Amino acid sequence: MADGAEVTVVGGGVVGLTSSLALAEAGHRVRCVRDVPAAETVSAVAGGLWFPYHVEPRDRVAAWGLTALEWFHSLAEVPAAGVALREGVMVERGTADRWWAAGVEGRREAAPSELPDGATGGVVCRVPLVTMAVHLAWLEDRCRAVGVELVDGRVDDVGDVESAVVVVAAGIRSAELLGDEGPQPSRGQVALLANPGLDRWVVDDDHPDGMVYALPHPGWVVCGGTDVLGSWDLEPDPGVHEAIVARVRSVVPELADAEVLGARVGLRPVAPSVRLQRSEVAGRTVVTNYGHGGAGVTLAWGCAQEVVGLVGGAAAP
């Protein structure tokens, strides 16, 4: 596929927008069609921490994640991008599984004083934390600046798209566009608390009372959470909300008196592996880019670079 192809990207979350931006910067003519605004996608609910959560396969995920890590490091110098480099601790309870940390510079063992009760260890590292409301708006602005046409609309079948190249990056809806067995929803509910000055994140996935994380942004802290595979329910559960707030306050004392601002729910698109490949469907080239689980933000730029190679006909990096 020669440079300058006409490409339609279906999906306007972080994966779709980043793919659109990368393709336009590579010289393609790009149209991004989204059925909901970026602010209403699951990407907007994400806590925004660089961490490859609930996603496979690990070898490819590690490579995509490191590419994205470099990109986010450069964007931390761009105030409008909403990216900050923040230190935090990944708590361990029992056997340590640190595959994700390979290539993360400056990581160290957590001191006992940095760990909650019952923890057996932890990794302290400084990684990107992305304020998604800001970052999604920045991505849209960058897309427009490089000539991406952002279109509000719904695509139900790739055969309905007129361009010769289609990139399917529609998250949980992606498979239905191809008549494929696609990602399953994993319901993630979070609580938003006012930020009392917290600047350090914590993730305690194996807390005995349920998953705990606190991801501080300017003005609020995204606190979680849940990971309920197979649930399509988008309504916040009041009981779950209260439990999340209680767990987080037990692990992060600084949030004990923080005002509760609300609750939000998003559906992670979980699949056996990220489906990032090229094929021919209905007489057109189709590149799929979905199934990122809880790591859409973490992998978006790394996967977008591979999308550029697939659209251009080059071997994937």
Rank of each mutant, 00 (worst) to 15 (best):
R144E: 15
V281P: 03
T18L: 05
L115E: 11
R58Q: 15
Q184S: 08
V9N: 12
V45N: 06
A243T: 07
R142D: 13
D209Y: 01
S279A: 15
A24G: 10
A175L: 00
A282W: 01
E306M: 06
L129C: 14
V203H: 00
P57Y: 10
V274D: 10
R278I: 09
P112V: 09
L261G: 07
E306W: 06
D157T: 01
R268C: 11
T41G: 08
A39T: 13
A80E: 15
D209G: 05
E162R: 13
S186V: 13
G4N: 03
H241Q: 13
G224D: 05
G48C: 11
W201A: 02
W301I: 12
H135E: 07
V252G: 08
L234M: 13
V308T: 05
V311L: 08
G16A: 10
F72E: 07
W50C: 06
V212S: 03
D97T: 14
V155P: 06
V221T: 04
E40Y: 02
V158T: 04
L215T: 03
V311Q: 07
A137L: 14
P37D: 07
G48L: 10
G13W: 01
P196E: 03
D152I: 02
P208E: 00
R154T: 15
L21I: 09
G106A: 04
V222R: 12
V307N: 04
D209F: 01
S74L: 06
T131V: 07
E140H: 13
G11A: 09
V270I: 11
G122I: 11
H73Q: 14
G11P: 00
E40C: 02
S163I: 00
T285R: 13
A214Y: 05
S279K: 14
D209R: 09
L215I: 13
E235P: 00
A96N: 04
R200D: 00
